[in-house]
């Protein structure tokens, strides 16, 4: 058998590289493997907003920003309150100055005075992340930085997010924004650090009127689950098929 020095070195180098490759780098996930890793989580966080009870005080927005370290004076917020005023001519007047952070203290909407006798209905609608069962934002993430936890909350891995902004564009509800401090995408987490300790989300706790409630949708005795099962509730933008888990009592066709 002939073996030149050149071919010996070549083959030797080749086998050395091949031997140094960890076997795990060739491992791909099989669907069966992924399925086997999943138990049946006993918790699925859901949210209930009662728009009849909301008075537009904005304490929820303030508490959320302070709790979660969202820069207070920048026009970004994880939750906000919108005001809808429908007049007798069928016009809708909608505003949300600073996300309702300072509450609604003036009847003026974008500088316009609307006479009380012309108002047919008017109400406040708090908004936050819907923690969708089929989150569009997670689907578009190119790096696996945003994900759904086993208890149904969509989170962002701040060490892994590259700040590309795809998810901000993909969310039909506009709840995501770019965090100027951490330089990553950011959004409502249902206050994951609080609900996993048995506390309520900061906005839920701050609301004096119980307009916001959070609960475990897998627990049939949970007041939120009971209300969703027995009362007439609606979700935002159902037609997108994202299966939002924030339910509203008293939602109006004018709400977008």
């Amino acid at each position: 058998m002939k073996c030149s020095r050149r071919s010996f070195l070549k083959k030797g180098l080749g086998s050395a590289v091949a031997a140094s490759l960890p076997l795990s780098s060739f491992k791909f996930l099989s669907p069966a493997e992924a399925r086997a890793a999943v138990g049946d989580p006993a918790v699925r966080w859901g949210f209930l907003v009662n728009t009849y009870k909301c008075v537009g005080c904005g304490m929820c927005v303030k508490a959320c920003k302070k709790e979660n370290g969202v820069p207070y004076d920048l026009p970004i917020t994880r939750t906000w309150v919108e005001r809808y005023v429908i007049t007798s001519d069928g016009e809708d007047h909608i505003d949300s100055p600073a996300g309702g952070r300072d509450g609604y203290t003036s009847p003026k909407i974008e500088g316009k005075d609307i006479p009380a006798e012309e108002i047919t209905k008017a109400f406040f609608v708090p908004k936050l992340c819907n923690q969708c069962a089929n989150p569009a934002c997670v689907q578009v993430c190119p790096v696996g930085a945003t994900f759904q936890t086993e208890d149904g909350v969509v989170l962002i891995d701040r060490t892994w997010c590259i700040g590309c902004g795809y998810c901000i564009m993909a969310c039909p509800y506009g709840v995501r924004f770019f965090h100027p401090v951490y330089k990553v995408a950011d959004k409502c987490t249902f206050c994951y650090h609080r609900i996993t300790k048995g506390m309520k989300s900061a906005c839920v706790q701050a609301c004096p009127f119980g307009a916001r409630q959070i609960g475990n949708l897998k627990d049939p005795d949970d007041p939120v689950t009971k209300a969703i099962l027995t009362e007439r509730v609606a979700v935002l933008k159902d037609e997108y098929g994202t299966k939002p888990q924030v339910f509203y009592i008293g939602l109006d066709e004018n709400v977008r």
Binding site: L29, P31, E33, A34, R35, A37, V38, A63, K66, E67, N68, N134, P135, V138, Q139, G144, A145, T146, F147, Q148, T149, E150, L155, I156, D157, R158, T159, W160, T189, Y192, H193, R194, T196, K197, M199, K200, A202, Q205, A206
Partner: peptide, 29 residues
């Protein structure tokens, strides 16, 4: 890795969940 039902929604770093759980609470109630 995949920590949940689907590759689409549950492909993530497991440590990120505990990162969020360790976030400090400001409003004590």
């Amino acid at each position: 890795g995949v920590h949940g039902k689907s590759f689409t929604y549950n492909f993530y770093r497991a440590g990120a969940v505990s990162d969020w759980k360790n976030f400090p609470v400001s409003y004590k109630g």
